[in-house]
Design a protein around this nucleic acid. Structure first.
Length: 196
DNA sequence: TACGTGATCACG
DNA sequence: GTGATCACGTAA
């Protein structure tokens, strides 16, 4: 079942980042469905220096200011498309970066898109999972409850004790805010046993 | 460990 | 207009 809009409209972005672990990110492109379980996320808020929205609204980050439940997709390092989930209500600019998935549906399609035979390599990074699911900047601002792009709950329960948190990756420029423990991921052993 | 790659944004 | 910078991935 697709996540309801209320899931995304909540005000605590770190809570949403944790709650997204174990949920399923899916795309359906030209009859090909691909998906994976979310196993790593990072929270971003306009209140801290790590966020694109820290300095206010720009053409790139404007969708972060919309109501939650839509996608924020941008190009990083000139090569990689990055997928974020916009959260909170209009004008409260917050988002959750999806950093890694555990592949579920359409693995053959994803491996073909990634030009590899290795399951482990297709969705193990923020730039890779977008390519595997065929997400690009044309998805920017798109609702997460339509038939092309959505996140669903398949009843996989994640315990707090199985969630590891730590500082976010690649934001050294954010000064003290780079130390915020706003990166969340699943412990390895549990991650395997929850995939059935 | 180095570097490709191009959009973005804070400057003029 | 320009230039430094960047929420990464890969090869080595």
């Amino acid at each position: 079942m697709k996540l309801p809009l209320e899931f995304y409209l909540r005000k605590n972005v770190t809570t949403i980042a944790k709650d997204l672990l174990g949920k399923i990110l899916c795309t359906r492109i030209k009859n090909a469905t691909t998906s994976g379980m979310i196993i790593e996320t990072e929270a971003y808020s306009c209140r801290e220096r790590g966020s694109h929205a820290f300095r206010g609204k720009t053409k790139r980050n404007e969708v972060m200011y919309e109501n939650g439940g839509i996608a924020y997709v941008y190009l990083c390092y000139g090569i990689h498309e990055m997928f974020n989930v916009v959260t909170n209500v209009k004008d409260k600019a917050e988002a959750v970066l999806i950093r890694a998935l555990s592949p579920l549906d359409g693995t053959a399609t994803m491996m073909q898109r990634m030009n590899t035979d290795s399951l482990k390599r297709i969705t193990s990074g923020p730039g890779k999972l977008t390519k595997a699911l065929n997400i690009d900047r044309s998805f920017n601002g798109m609702s997460l409850s339509n038939n092309e792009l959505w996140i669903e709950d398949r009843g996989i329960a994640i315990h707090t004790k199985d969630i590891v948190c730590g500082p976010r990756i690649g934001i050294d420029y954010a000064g003290e805010d780079a130390k915020l423990p706003w990166r969340f991921y699943l412990k390895e052993p549990k991650q395997k046993s929850t995939i059935i």
